[in-house]
Design a protein around this nucleic acid. Sequence first.
DNA 1: ATGGTTTTTACTGCGTC
DNA 2: GACGCGGTAAAAACCAT
Length: 323
Amino acid sequence: MTDTTIRTYTNETEDEETTERSGEQEHCPECGGRLVSDDEHAETVCSDCGLVVEEDEIDRGPEWRAFDSAEKDKKSRVGAPTTNMMHDQGLSTNIGWQDKDAYGRALSSRQRQKMQRLRTWNERFRTRDSKERNLKQALGEIDRMASALGLPENVRETASVIYRRALEEDLLPGRSIEGVATASLYAAARQAGTPRSLDEISAVSRVEKMELTRTYRYVIRELGLEVKPADPEHYVPRFVSDLDLSDETERMARELLESARQEGVHSGKSPVGLAAAAVYAAALLTNEKVTQNDVSEVASISEVTIRNRYKELLEASDTAAPA
DNA sequence: ATGGTTTTTACTGCGTC
DNA sequence: GACGCGGTAAAAACCAT
């Protein structure tokens, strides 16, 4: 019922690489129109034809939006954009480590000592109360695990937010920081549509799978988070790329899953297994060589499960779309 | 705690390179 | 003979009750 359209991930190779960075040009290389820099989107675009000449510039605008002037007053401040990935949202005072003054001159030894003391105390105050310290450690942990799993930044942010909420709701007592941090990451990954299986998560986490599942349930329930059951399709792109298979195969796998869904072969089966089987079956259909063993390894699923699932998948696709 | 379902483990036989 | 594959039975894990 929810969008059943097959999303084809045919990454249009960017052949729009017409703009070689050949110095600063004032005119559009396509039509010769005037170039305008669009701060809001951090792009330089041609005012005539709309060609984007330069992307990913530094966006000097604020990271927030305000809808009336009162709100603007409230949110205005100086400094770097806030981020939930730092325990104090990146807002606290930082004393530079270089012993230089504002003009870049070296400090006298007396001044250096003074700065050193200030640094020490600043650090102590900054991470003073237990919640702050707690957060600091947890966020470090989240970051470590996320990069070990190759999860993008937005997942880390989400995980940070979830953890923060858990902390505010006093869900921590009786549970390990690590456990909650791991659970937050697991939840965030699923919400972001880039799920990692419990196995994968617990492989990089310091907590046992049992504790993780327990904590995860608890956090989800207490925070009222809504996490839809994992969609097998979300695993497909990762497996496909891990196995060096073609886009064609990826498309096939999606189709198989789609017809499986219509036939209701679904319910109760582990999504990971389904995804793995679909990838295997698709590779078979497109004559690319992968063994069940290969798939079972990248998916951390047993070969037997792949066999069972993929038989069902093929049956389902036969009845759904007879050859 | 229990029972039903799914996944895993372990083993066997078949065909192919 | 090693390897990939398919099947089976029994054990283990999981989930709702």
